[in-house]
Design a binder for these strands. Structure first.
Lengths: 189, 189, 189, 189
DNA sequence: GATGAATGAGAATTCATTCAT
DNA sequence: GATGAATGAATTCTCATTCAT
């Protein structure tokens, strides 16, 4: 059996970790995470051998969730513009709906506790998305931009756009559109 | 005065802090920072009352340096495009030349140890730049984009571009140009 | 429960604290206290959240023990003189038997680490004794002396008497009697 | 020259020490004491080789001042009762006028930083007073009480009385009289 | 499997003292 | 003689991890 322990409890710990890492960074104590999850300190270590393991799995879990969200309900039949917009839309919607997870990812991305291996695996999770993006943009993007760079730009513009959306929630649709416009025009041939 | 508090030593501590915070995050021990700077543990605290003070001052110091770098040698006579490009160019050059400082800023930006007050003061340091940017782009930018958002996009694109430059140093000029193009086209009317 | 917090261990820490605070004052290191109690440094803090908590609880614990000792085996049927003497006798006996606790109490009483709240609660522990003293002395004491002042005099004379007893153990009974005589005569109408 | 350094500055440091030791105990930092006295940290150590020296000299200085105060204006011609009362009166007056010094003495008396030697020398300062007390009381005191014990009782009753005077300043004369009455009657034959 | 007490290696400070200026 | 920066040992407290129950 791959995972004999209760998946439910494992998730409870990861959920608690999201909140605490978002608020306090990777320095958040395992004891607090365990308590927030409703467990005793020691229990955390039956689900994650070390704190670093927890942090790395947390990272991968959120990245996987995000990757899945981006492709959910993907309009295979849509135009390249529509398909690209769909990914952007999901990016913004998921980010707006999960501010703590976004904050946690930002913390983890700058932490040396997340291993190179984890970062690689996380990259892998987005391979399909990058591939689709590449396909969608084939006729639109300038030759200056390779797929990885385009993806990174999309991601970073979404991040910035989300910051403005969090600051001015009333202008959510405005920034969502403006952000995508900047992307679409920016990379255009 | 016996020995005056030397600005030189203060800078030595900040310099050591840059390296260690870049590598280990805000959790880097003050003892290590002091030792790296060539001082005894206690000496750090004659220059910075608390670790939080050190972190906040470090943040402001780097931000101030960056802000100054962006306007250095600013081509007042240039065209709006040239002036904007100049800021972009400085952003990329400073970033490429100071990877540890960039990493440190990223660490500090996600840390709750950097106070709201420090963040405000840091914002203030970029006011003039944002103002000039706004002036430069007056005739170019789409009405969708307010000055703050434009500045944030410029900054985030530079950050992303720098990541690619660090990864592929050979393609520095390529990415530098491509990144600016994306910006200039992206926000265009 | 894994291992329950044991009252026994808590007492061991308090006992160690008595010895060290008596000898070194409230500056006695928690590490030494823990080691003297037979524990690792950190263990102390699972029983007392902070050193101040330890000190305050130590204070209250000793005061409670003393208060209990004074009323132990109290001769309800005795004459007022006998009953008052009984309290004096207990005071002296407890003090002579517990020199370290006496020393510790003296240290704690002059320390600003013992809170006003703790002092109040300690006062409360002696309320019954003060009340009984007042009743016992009703027919004997001069109107000059209120109950609180009488109690304070009894206490301070006992303290002084104990110092002489410690210095000249052979004369214990002599000083014990002489001290009480001074009290009884001193406050007489 | 016995003391080549400025006596004035030495006194300034001792005065500052009184306030700080009264408030914070012997743990009061030398740096704070120096600053309160108007000097730099290091200057303190040209007047007192170590903190322990400062503490011991502080102790002796205050004890000497008190001893002198008790005999000031001593009524050589008065009756034994009057002469004894005079000492009591001085004790109370000095104590009421110098609460910080009293508090400091209490701190120092329980501190292991005041050496046995200092305690002996302090005792010596009161020898004359004890002698006079003995003479005064020759015809009055019960044989139960040796001179040292009588002196200690006088001192401790004064201390207790002063506490009540500080708490109820309106009743100063009442407690001052009542305290002495308790002493005088208490030790009487 | 769950619990949480026990552990001890750090971590940030503090502070008496020294000594270059 | 005065100054106060420099020092590093000592202190309180935290926390990941272990393991007896």
């Amino acid at each position: 059996m791959a995972r004999p322990l209760s998946e439910e409890k494992r998730e409870a710990i990861l959920t608690a970790a999201v909140d605490l890492v978002a608020a306090q960074g990777t320095g958040a104590p395992t004891a607090k995470i365990a308590k927030e999850a409703g467990f005793a300190e020691g229990t955390l270590f039956t689900y994650f051998a070390t704190k670093d393991d927890l942090l790395n799995e947390l990272f991968l879990e959120i990245e996987a969730e995000l990757a899945a969200a981006l492709l959910d309900d993907y309009p295979t039949d849509g135009s390249p513009y529509e398909r690209t917009r769909h990914i952007w839309s999901r990016l913004i919607d998921w980010g707006a709906a999960n501010p703590a997870k976004r904050k946690t990812i930002r913390q983890l991305k700058v932490s040396d506790r997340v291993s190179e291996a984890s970062r690689c695996r996380a990259s892998g999770l987005f391979e399909e998305i990058v591939g689709r993006l590449e396909g969608n943009l084939a006729g639109h993007v300038s030759t200056e931009y390779d797929a990885a760079y385009v993806s990174a730009i999309l991601d970073t513009l979404a991040e910035t756009t989300l910051e403005f959306i969090m600051r001015y929630p009333d202008k959510r649709e405005h920034y969502k559109r403006a952000g995508f416009d900047a992307f679409w025009r920016g990379i255009a041939r």
